Computed example of a mutant assay.
Amino acid sequence: MKLRCIIVDDEPLAVDLLKTYVLQTPYLDLQGTFNSAVEALSTITEAKIDVAFLDINMPQINGLEFSKTLPPNIKIIFTTAYDQYAIEGFKVNALDYLLKPINYSDFLQAAKRALDWFKLADTAKTESIFIKSGYRIEKLEYNDIQYIENQKDYVKFFIESAKDPVSSLMSMQSLEEKLPKSNFMRIHRSFIVNLDKVKTIERNCIVFGKVYIPVSETYKDEFNKFLNNKTL
Results as ranks from 00 to 15, higher is better:
221 D>G: 00
191 F>K: 02
121 A>Y: 06
187 I>W: 00
200 T>C: 06
108 L>A: 13
186 R>I: 02
158 F>E: 00
94 A>Q: 02
124 A>L: 09
169 L>D: 13
134 G>L: 03
201 I>H: 05
161 S>K: 12
169 L>W: 11
213 I>K: 06
210 K>N: 15
184 F>C: 07
98 L>C: 11
167 S>C: 11
122 D>V: 09
182 S>T: 07
137 I>F: 06
109 Q>E: 15
207 V>R: 12
215 V>T: 03
213 I>W: 07
144 D>A: 14
96 D>E: 14
203 R>T: 15
154 Y>F: 14
153 D>T: 06
163 K>H: 13
205 C>E: 12
152 K>L: 11
204 N>H: 08
155 V>H: 10
165 P>M: 06
140 L>V: 05
210 K>H: 13
95 L>E: 08
143 N>M: 02
206 I>Y: 13
117 W>T: 11
213 I>C: 07
172 M>V: 10
107 F>S: 03
121 A>T: 09
124 A>G: 04
192 I>H: 06
195 L>D: 02
218 T>F: 01
226 F>R: 00
167 S>D: 11
211 V>Q: 11
139 K>F: 00
160 E>Q: 01
199 K>F: 10
209 G>N: 14
184 F>P: 05
139 K>A: 03
170 M>A: 01
185 M>P: 03
168 S>E: 02
162 A>I: 01
186 R>T: 00
206 I>H: 09
92 V>P: 00
167 S>A: 15
227 L>K: 05
194 N>P: 09
105 S>Q: 15
145 I>M: 06
154 Y>C: 03
142 Y>S: 06
92 V>S: 10
137 I>D: 13
219 Y>W: 12
132 K>S: 14
168 S>W: 01
162 A>D: 01
103 N>I: 08
209 G>F: 04
150 N>R: 12
180 P>S: 09
114 A>V: 10
199 K>T: 08
132 K>I: 10
135 Y>N: 15
105 S>I: 08
142 Y>I: 07
198 V>C: 02
170 M>V: 05
145 I>H: 04
150 N>A: 15
158 F>W: 03
183 N>V: 12
174 S>T: 04
110 A>K: 10
211 V>D: 15
201 I>G: 02
133 S>N: 05
95 L>W: 08
155 V>M: 11
143 N>W: 04
162 A>K: 14
214 P>Y: 07
128 S>K: 09
154 Y>S: 05
171 S>A: 12
127 E>T: 08
200 T>M: 08
120 L>R: 13
130 F>W: 14
158 F>Y: 01
157 F>I: 03
205 C>R: 15
126 T>V: 09
115 L>Y: 13
105 S>E: 14
220 K>Y: 15
200 T>P: 01
124 A>S: 01
111 A>W: 00
135 Y>E: 14
93 N>H: 15
211 V>I: 14
112 K>V: 10
158 F>P: 05
139 K>L: 05
160 E>D: 12
107 F>M: 07
105 S>P: 04
92 V>C: 06
132 K>G: 04
205 C>F: 12
142 Y>Q: 06
119 K>N: 12
139 K>V: 04
101 P>C: 04
98 L>Y: 02
110 A>N: 05
217 E>D: 15
138 E>P: 07
190 S>D: 04
97 Y>D: 10
201 I>L: 07
121 A>N: 09
155 V>S: 14
171 S>D: 09
106 D>R: 03
169 L>Q: 14
194 N>F: 01
100 K>D: 03
